[in-house]
Design a protein around this nucleic acid. Structure first.
Length: 149
DNA sequence: GCCAACGTTGGC
DNA sequence: GCCAACGTTGGC
């Protein structure tokens, strides 16, 4: 089993929203590096749910992958925010996965707090200029974050 | 709203 | 293949 971190704007989907839904499609990833990580995910993998572009950016909980990567339908919907004119049913470069809620942390682990953790120094999330929205997390980093809950 | 940093586009 | 211009991300 592998560990990941994925960013979501809480206005679109928050950890509470996922908790309410139980399961959700994770779509709209439009970056090749992030997409490649999506495709590397296996059912049963777990991920930290990070809230971005919001008043309190940080890790808000844990989710798990319940369906591995498949073509992202939002790329084919003209009215969708994530529509991609270059995608077609035959050739859709983008991927989506299905996820389920696992745990909502009592408090959000803020970005500033995460940056103070020596054990997380190698995590792309805390590195200057990093905009990657889907990234791998090592077992050591995973344990270090769990200890902060 | 600002702006640093990054990714993508497109002319050459 | 280079690189300038542009668009996007995302914290503050």
């Amino acid at each position: 089993m592998a560990y990941w971190l994925m960013k979501s704007e809480p206005d679109e989907l928050s950890i509470k929203g996922l908790e309410t839904l139980g399961e959700a499609r994770w779509d709209g990833v439009r970056n090749y590096q992030a997409r490649n990580f999506l495709r590397a995910m296996a059912v049963g993998d777990q991920f930290f749910f990070y809230h971005s572009s919001c008043p309190e950016p940080g890790i808000a909980g844990i989710g798990t992958i319940v369906e591995a990567a498949y073509p992202d339908p939002t790329a084919l919907e003209p009215d969708n925010h994530y529509f991609d004119a270059k995608a077609s049913p035959e050739k859709n470069p983008w991927s989506a996965i299905n996820v389920a809620h696992v745990e909502t942390f009592p408090c959000v682990l803020g970005l500033g707090y995460l940056k103070q953790q020596a054990a997380l120094a190698e995590l792309p999330l805390v590195q200057k200029g990093s905009r990657l929205s889907v990234m791998p997390v090592t077992a050591e980093q995973w344990a270090a974050v769990l200890a902060l809950r």
